[in-house]
Design a protein around this nucleic acid. Structure first.
Lengths: 343, 343
DNA sequence: ATTGTTTGCTAAAAGGTTTTAGCAAACACT
DNA sequence: AGTGTTTGCTAAAACCTTTTAGCAAACAAT
């Protein structure tokens, strides 16, 4: 492997100082009164020999790595994968690299990852926080790092944040089912106290209360694997034969639920079941009975997140007032000829 | 933000040299004959004050960043997202960080990304290469960097590589359809000369030839968006009403295709259509008529990739002989009561 | 008493930048 | 001729490690 060129090689060849070359490369030629002639010669040689500054040395010196740490719950979940993809794209355009990882909503793991990001000297943090990392995030902010939370808030932490109106989304979804004539609507969620899950539950409950209907909630443990989850949903539905509609709190729970429902023999109830899920998913386009979805505006979420982050990174002192952006969800109604008629 | 501790702070507090502390922290205490007593005292203090070495300085000095660059075609494709997730997990366990990005199968973009990774001084490269980057990859290898290709080979490049037996997979899938009595089997793929796509086409053709059946192939341009793709598939199927089965070359084409097929009125052909897709997908579990899939062993792929990479990274001179690992696919047969009976 | 070996540690260079502080020459002004 | 200002550039410190080469003291052997 041929030796990498250094700035000193450029300097030597042109008989100028390292300082001069550095100034020119950093666009400070004018400011530092380097002659146009010399500037041109330096840039020409740099181009010719393909010199590129050593980023490690740059970072060591400047303290900036042009890197953003991105922590999502699970990169293999399409919702997060899409957001990650969009964020990555914008970041690259702006000259930033993305280091990503999946928290698996595990507190300890997340703490480790935050600490790993610190060690790496990332310039900013984008996080979908699990429970129990309040202090770590507070510390990041106190230490002056740009932090943007995505998808969920963290109580007691005054951080920039991009979320959707989860309560309203769930409320609308539930109301939609009620309007269609469903009366025994179950809510299947996971046992998480994260803001987005709590808000969805609230939206569901609110809609039912307003209509004097009874709430029926199943909380599946998050750690359950696919099989356990299906098992859990199965017995829940078995015991409550009178349930005529289900609102799933998040897409992977819905997919598990649909697996269960699709196994019930065709002659059975499912055709009449009203189904709505939080987060849209390719699967829902095809399922019979149709599945309506509370779609999150992934593109808008990604854009707001990265915009906020780039703003913070551009700032001298990142003490802008913390901003919480709440985006609307939309109900993707998939019409089924089989749905109940309004009572 | 409180000033970060440096190794010199530790050294000063204990009245020893920086060198000594460094040796101890790097596990060379014994080798360098530092007394057990001093070693213990240094480690104790380091622990107490929470000193962590500056990774940028370390990397600058050692040339190692403990970072692996991972370039997949598209992180929002579940196939790649799953692999990425598994690789990330193993990498972290072994003390490596992952920097990822999506190539979008764009040659120029990929070249840029490779160059970005070089600038970042990643220790190793995991790449799902698009067409046209042969030279860049050769150069990486020639320069002594550990490179592992995933999902596809690159002609003329002697790199470590993990792929599946695409030809056999497609052959088996096609044979499966033939055995079920389908006669007019179409192959819907994208216009890519990438090894995996070519091999799938070959498998399909081979099976048809062996059975004296005629090949009917649609190549959709990769750059087409969902709408265009559906449009393209629609007119293709319209013009060939006699087609009774479809083999999709990759999952996102299949999902588009299913959208098209699901729109055909229920009274129509689709119920009789034989459907198989390369790459399994959640969607296929639910579609009616059922979709059989050529499932790729994502977990095995990820494991082999990261194992190869870690081996290379452990090596002094990464000139192990390039190894190509070919993994088997499996046919996930989803039984439909509607399938044709064998002729 | 001399020489050789081991022990326990360290000074200083190297890694490749950016940036502060400042110098010498040229020019302008009185 | 002397003073002040601008121009055009640079020396050297700083960023924080790792690692090479080697030193002084203690001990062992002759």
């Amino acid at each position: 492997m041929k030796k990498k060129l250094q700035i000193s090689d450029i300097a030597k060849q042109l008989n100028v100082s390292i300082t001069t070359v550095s100034f020119i490369l950093n666009g400070k030629a004018k400011e530092k009164r380097i002659s146009d002639d010399l500037t041109a010669r330096v840039l020409k040689l740099v181009e010719e020999v393909g010199y590129r500054p050593n980023q490690l040395a740059q970072s060591l010196r400047t303290g900036k790595t042009k890197t953003i740490g991105l922590m999502v719950e699970d990169i293999s979940n399409p919702f997060f994968a899409n957001i990650a993809r969009l964020i990555e794209e914008r970041a690259h355009k702006e000259g930033y690299k993305i280091v990503y990882c999946s928290t698996e909503d595990d507190t300890e793991r997340t703490k480790e990852l935050i600490s790993m990001f610190r060690d790496m000297h990332v310039d900013g943090y984008i996080i979908t926080p699990p429970e129990g990392v309040e202090e770590d995030i507070k510390k990041l902010i106190a230490d002056g790092f740009p932090v943007v939370l995505a998808d969920r808030q963290v109580a007691g932490v005054d951080a920039h944040c991009v979320i959707v109106d989860n309560l309203l989304g769930a409320y609308n979804a539930t109301t939609h089912l009620i309007e269609r004539g469903y009366q025994r609507i179950a809510f299947i969620t996971i046992d998480s106290k994260q803001s987005q899950m709590v808000q969805r539950l609230e939206g569901y409950t609110k809609a039912l209360e307003e209509n004097d209907l009874e709430a029926v909630v199943l909380e599946v443990p998050y750690r359950y694997d696919a099989k356990q989850m299906i098992q859990s949903i199965t017995s829940f539905l078995e015991e409550r034969k009178n349930i005529d509609a289900v609102l799933f709190a998040t897409n992977y729970v819905a997919v598990r639920g649909l697996e269960e429902i699709s196994q019930i023999s065709p002659a059975d109830a499912p055709a009449k079941l009203g189904l709505v899920s939080y987060d849209d998913h390719d699967v829902f386009k095809f399922f019979k009975p149709t599945v309506t979805a509370v779609a999150q505006p992934t593109e808008a979420i990604a854009n707001h997140v990265i915009n906020l982050m780039l703003n913070l990174l551009g700032q001298k002192n990142s003490t802008l007032k913390a901003e919480t952006i709440i985006l609307p969800t939309s109900l993707v109604v998939r019409n089924s000829s089989l749905h109940k008629t309004k009572v």
